[in-house]
Computed example of a mutant assay.
Amino acid sequence: MSKIIFITGASRGFGKIWAKALLQRGDKVAATARNTDSLNDLVAEFGDAVLPIQLDVTDRAASFAAVNKAKEHFGGIDVLINNAGFGLFGAIEETTEAQARQQMETNFFGLLWVTQAITPIMREQQSGHIIQVSSVLGLMTLPVLGLYNASKYAVNGLTETLATEVKGFGINVSLIEPNGFSTDWSGASAAQTEAIEAYAPVKQAFAEGATPDSWGKPEATTDAVLALIDSPNPPLHFLLGKVAYPMVAGVYAARQADFDAWKEVAEAAHGH
């Protein structure tokens, strides 16, 4: 049975690839982008099955209007894929207020607005699946991506809470947490801070830490994402790519070691 999907950030990268895969298998897709010209090829190939919507997710009113337009057009929404976002590269000290706010406005608040718009529709339907595209960097951090890390940690905290609040309404919630993939995220879609020379060694070490094999192929993700969408019992956390699991496992093991090492001191601080 075909599904109705609402996907943000569908102009390129994961959003474009997944939108096309969904349309190819017969689903209907409301695809949003800042510039809908980027969706013309999907419209030409799939016709009425795709509804292009111009949307800047940082505009809360526009996000609600876009979701309502999709609902009215298709009669409902089965799945939300909150994919819009970008990467901000640079040391925390280098980051301007405008850059920090824009990172959070897009990656966190934009996701929040679309989630708020779609939740009452799914609650009324007593069904739906909210999928937030986070990152492995919502579970661990890397240097030179401080504000991006923070935005994804915020997304994860919000989404874990959401899952507990809407479970009784028949709404599933999932976080897709990819490792690095060869999309425009680190290229044309990325933003850069103005460099402070003192951080050059940190940036060099970061750049040298990745090998060609570290970056996954975006087109290879489609089967996994379709399986997530089709699962009757989807996971809350869904790591994407072969690098993600060992990265996260190592970080969590180190955290547990810290917790254990300071357990007695922490317990004594309780006071009774």
Rank of each mutant, 00 (worst) to 15 (best):
S63E: 07
P178V: 09
A210Y: 14
L137Y: 12
A70G: 04
A65G: 06
T221Q: 10
Q256E: 14
I81H: 02
V225N: 05
M1A: 12
G87S: 15
D78E: 06
D213Q: 14
W185P: 06
P234C: 07
E45W: 11
P120W: 00
D37M: 15
Y252C: 10
F74P: 01
A224D: 12
I176H: 04
K203E: 11
D230T: 07
M1T: 13
A210V: 13
E45P: 09
P178L: 05
T95E: 14
E267M: 12
E264F: 09
S134R: 04
F46C: 00
V144H: 09
N107Y: 10
P120H: 00
V155M: 03
N172Q: 13
I53W: 02
V166R: 02
T119F: 07
G241R: 06
F6A: 02
E94M: 10
D56Q: 07
S127E: 01
T221G: 04
L112T: 10
F89R: 14
S189F: 01
A163T: 05
F14N: 10
S2I: 11
A84D: 02
G76K: 10
L139M: 08
M104T: 12
A150Q: 02
E72S: 08
K69R: 15
S11H: 08
H270Y: 15
T115M: 00
R60P: 06
D230V: 06
L145A: 12
I92C: 09
M1L: 13
P120N: 01
I118D: 00
L55I: 11
T119C: 05
G110K: 01
G90M: 12
V50I: 11
V265E: 15
A91E: 12
E177W: 09
P120K: 00
E219I: 05
I53G: 00
A191T: 13
L112H: 09
V29I: 08
A163R: 11
T119H: 02
A65D: 09
A261H: 10
F108P: 00
W18C: 09
A98L: 08
V67H: 03
G250M: 04
F238K: 15
G168M: 02
K263M: 12
D230R: 03
K16T: 14
P201M: 14
A19S: 12
T183S: 06
G241T: 08
E165V: 01
F86A: 05
A98V: 09
K3E: 13
V202G: 03
F206Y: 13
A210P: 07
